[in-house]
Amino acid sequence: MSNTAGRIEPAITDIEQLKDHPAMARLLSWKRDAITEAKFDRDELTITIDRAFIRDACNILKPEFNFLSDVTSVDWLPSEPRFQVTYHLLSHKLKERVRLRVMLPGGQPTVESIISVWPAANFFEREIHDLMGIRFIGHPNMTRILMPDDWEGHPLRKDYPVEGYR
């Protein structure tokens, strides 16, 4: 028995069943190959995009999902691909959100910057670079933002101790 009382509906992962979602429909009519996975879980849609197409996918979604809420990252050490970059898009018109994610390999993780689509990504991408060590190609100022410039390591990685190195 699970440890909670909440009744959780099983996630839908079949792309066919999700094709009516506005974000999904847009992406499917553009390029089916860009989508590697889709998941509808707890009322939220997550679409995994091939890392080569993330900027284009954002451009395709922008007319409808006009607002970039957040960009963040997760470290899935020790699995491979190790890093996940998560984008939360919001549609003011449809009052709906969609989550895009890109999976990146552990060695030299890089992904294209989406600053050209939303300048709002600037600080978010710098923060990920600073704390998780993922490089965004095409970012005009890929420097640390929260940690001191001469800091070593990336604190949010799972192999970085919570107490820091002493």
């Binding site: 699970s2 440890n3 909670t4 879980d41 957040d70």
Partner: peptide, 12 residues
């Protein structure tokens, strides 16, 4: 503590 079923959410 208590276990939380695997998954991800964004709440604003």
């Amino acid at each position: 503590g208590f276990a939380v079923p695997a998954g991800e959410v964004y709440q604003a």
